[in-house]
Design a binder for these strands. Structure first.
Lengths: 187, 187
DNA sequence: GTCTATACTTCGATAGAC
DNA sequence: GTCTATCGAAGTATAGAC
């Protein structure tokens, strides 16, 4: 039952953003009475914290999967630019700005997530010292997030060109990394 | 008097973000009765629209100034990464997401602003066909916005490295563009 | 655990006196 | 133009019966 509310809250977070999460709306989407929510969660911040933690867990899991893929650099980019993930990342930032009680948790996990990405990227980009991994990770996260949030508004000017730059960088960065005796990927 | 409310609303937008803009809070900050606001503005959307329009006008003005500067490429980057401007841009996006009535205006002006930046940048980067101006502008806007919003949370991991990449690109892009007979800038 | 009932706040907005 | 008064909806949250 507790999870029913967490599910509903996360669904609202995806559909309408953090602003849409209210006790009444969460309960309605869960098909429950508003007051029951307060039996399972002391305050709304408690509920939102539970949502945040679950999103973080899943994000770390996706990260591990990306690392294990055949083209980890591209998989990391996909992780940063896929609509659902990037939108949630943006909403987490929004929550951190407006809910002081939850800020620390979000900042802490964002730092953890970024550190893991930097570590992995710097291993993959060891041959490109001119591009510090931490900077590349920042740019990827920022660009992915903006493309997603703008697309939701129907604003896509420049997206194609930005993606072309990323695409070339992925091919370029990946080129010297792969074993030259292996055949190149299909596309 | 009308402007008094617009000023108050914009101030709240800067300090607390779009979420903080309510009739009561705007009136309070303007030192006026809440109901008076509805004499000057039919709805809250009307007020917010007035704020949005003024922000856009000022942004275009700043853009013109940047173009006229000695190092326009760097000035454009400063425009995208300066805390006040980037924060407002992010809030405009947030407004566009949640207020349907205002969305069109924000999207339209964002397109206009981007088109102007792309036009200017593509002139400045004519010698670098490998980097489409529209993509560079996207990356600059995305990165600037994210650095600002994260800094507000005390999250600065990777910012330094990302700024280093931008710095190098600015020097690199600017290098072939400047007249070789002119002495390079001080710093 | 789940229910009914309810308190208190803030929200956008309107009516009507002056 | 500016005031007092007020509405209904939605926000978080609690008390107490079952």
């Amino acid at each position: 039952m507790r999870m029913l509310f967490v599910d509903a809250a996360e669904q609202i977070l995806r559909d309408e953003g953090y602003i849409g999460i209210s006790a009444r709306q969460v309960a309605a989407r869960a098909g429950q009475k508003t007051q029951l929510l307060y039996y399972y969660f002391r305050t709304m911040d408690d509920l939102i914290l539970a949502v945040v933690r679950r999103i973080n867990e899943r994000r770390l899991q996706r990260f591990e999967e990306a690392l294990a893929s055949a083209d980890p650099l591209r998989a990391l980019w996909d992780l940063n630019s896929n609509p659902a993930g990037a939108a949630l990342s943006a909403e987490l930032t929004s929550i951190a700005i407006h809910r002081e009680e939850i800020r620390a948790e979000i900042v802490r996990s964002a730092q953890q997530f970024r550190a893991m990405q930097v570590k992995a990227t710097s291993r993959l980009l060891a041959h490109r010292e001119d591009f510090p991994a931490a900077g590349i990770v920042m740019i990827a996260a920022a660009l992915g997030r903006m493309i997603v949030s703008e697309s939701a508004l129907g604003l896509t000017d420049g997206h194609h060109e930005a993606l072309a730059i990323v695409e070339r960088a992925l091919l370029d960065f990946g080129a010297r990394h792969r074993d030259p005796h292996t055949s190149p990927p299909a596309a």
